[in-house]
Amino acid sequence: MTLPLFEAGGDPGPNFAALLRSTGLVPPEPDVPATEMAIAHATTVVAIRCQQGVVMAGDRRATSGHLISHRTIEKVFPADRHSGVAIAGAAGPAMEMVRLFQLQLEHYEKVEGKGLSLDGKANQLGMMVRNNLPAAMQGFAVVPLFAGYDTTRGVGRLFQYDVTGGRYEEREYAVGGSGSLHAGTVIKLGYRSDADADEMIDLAVSALFRTAEEDSATGGPDLVRGIYPVVAVIGADGFERVADADVETRFRDLLASLEDQGGDS
């Protein structure tokens, strides 16, 4: 690999995607409809604002049609120090989008010597989703959630997208994926604007549990194999993933409380 040097006119600047294009490393667009292939789909993700910032969570299941293709995939990732991205949709393109997005932010920060603003990051992701539109029309849709701690304003913020790259900032919570209807309802009922991260982690855990009961594409906690949803808190200290043991405890508490109620729900 040689050192990428450019003439002043053709310099891609701090844009990693433009650099990839100029070096010919961009993979070709898929021209086969996804319906002809069984590809993995990632499902339910949620993001909830809290006093410390934002809580993000996602289940661990990927499905291909009616089959479970992966039990342990992760859908919640740090985008950089103070932001995170959660994905729903075609798993392969989604993972690639997250990887490129992470690199894009880091590359910009290193080249420019200063990171992008939170709005800048949200717009970048919107553009990437927009660029994926031709693939989305073939069935490879990727719909992310983006959340971060805005260090200039000192608040957590979250953004929802549609397949066309439309960017919508939400004030309370955002949900994505196949189970979004159920997860959204649970969060809507339990949300309080003055709640702290601890309460909202419980709410996210409960939302994913309830969703897994209703939506076959959403995975619940797997107590046998020890697989639990990925939960992360993004606050002033940055993106921090909640330990699996902590998530397990919360699930066990939730199960115990449901048993006390006699299992009705």
Partner: peptide, 17 residues
């Protein structure tokens, strides 16, 4: 600085590939 940016690009491209 031109060399620095080329280095960042080289490293990020290599890490990506």
């Amino acid at each position: 600085d031109q060399l620095r940016i080329a280095g960042v690009r080289h490293a990020d491209l290599k890490g990506y590939t």
